[in-house]
Design a protein around this nucleic acid. Structure first.
Lengths: 158, 158
DNA sequence: AGCAATTAAATTGTGCGCAATCTATATAAG
DNA sequence: CTTATATAGATTGCGCACAATTTAATTGCT
């Protein structure tokens, strides 16, 4: 019953032009960012998503797959194989919770903990590549989080 | 020789917290957007990227793989298999240029042209899901394009 | 205790993204 | 004309994302 009453800025014809696609720059920027991280993370043998997982483990060791999924907005279909790769690299172990055998408990290895030192330069190097000022970064974050909020909860009403 | 003289807002330790990752919301928002497009594009049997390619062809029929790649910031490794899928769906043909046999010429089929009618409602439906106002959309686009500009040309100096 | 419903994670299959490499055509230089 | 170089696209291989399904453990209900 919730029909959208948003007044469109463009007519339907104009709206189909690539230059008027709201989300295309978002999509391209995200790709560009991941590409830009690649050389920085190469030395750590991490992909961008693996790096995000390591960030979370460095903050809080011993989390579950579900914990990771909620924080990263990803499911086990993405995370399970990724975690196996991080396990194969000896950065973490994939144990089981003692109180609930269903739950994987992800723990950093010594190697995984040591990796953090070498990651300390990554955020700075990335900031240098992007060179947005603090205001722009905050704006961008707010806009992106607004989008995520609107799209993630299909359920709650307007 | 171009060392970055950007003054960091955070120290190296804080910079490794997920909540301080500039680009994580960008990455998550892009994922969320593609996910949100999925049900809208299902009826057209298109993925988000296939939809972008169709948008370009509806604007200008007969382009090459290189043309597409430059506009979408993607290479033949991504586009070739995608274009084969669109060809299999009978939305386009993958011919060759008469003057240069290396070049693929992508042409819409009748079916592909007809699809445009059914796509006319997609931008509006998406705008309803995202519900950012015009100012926010412009801000977002500008910020994303800034990022793309900074990251895409590794070559030109500051 | 016994059984249905729920939950956590794994699995399967499709489609990107992209680096690296390869093939074929076209152009340039000698 | 011939060899070198450049260009357009295809191929290969890996790692996401994610829908859909499956497996196994736990919880709730009676």
């Amino acid at each position: 019953m919730s029909s959208c009453t948003n007044k469109p800025t463009l007519d339907a014809e104009e709206a189909l032009l690539l230059k008027n696609q709201i989300c295309f720059p978002l999509y391209s920027a995200a790709n560009a960012v991941i590409r830009a991280y690649r050389p920085l993370l190469e030395a750590l043998e991490l992909t961008y998503l693996q790096y995000l997982v390591m960030l979370l483990l460095w903050e809080k060791d011993g989390v579950s797959v579900k914990d990771l999924g909620q924080q990263l907005h990803l499911d086990s279909g993405t995370l399970t194989p990724l975690l196996k790769r991080l396990e194969a690299k000896q950065y973490l172990t994939r144990g089981r919770s003692e109180t609930d055998e269903r739950i994987r408990v992800l723990n950093l290895t010594t190697e995984g903990k040591k990796l953090r030192e070498r990651a300390l330069t990554v955020p700075g190097a990335m900031a240098c590549k992007v060179t947005l000022d603090t205001n722009e970064l905050i704006q961008l974050r707010n806009l992106c989080e607004k989008i995520i909020d609107r799209l993630e909860g299909d359920d709650h009403p307007g």
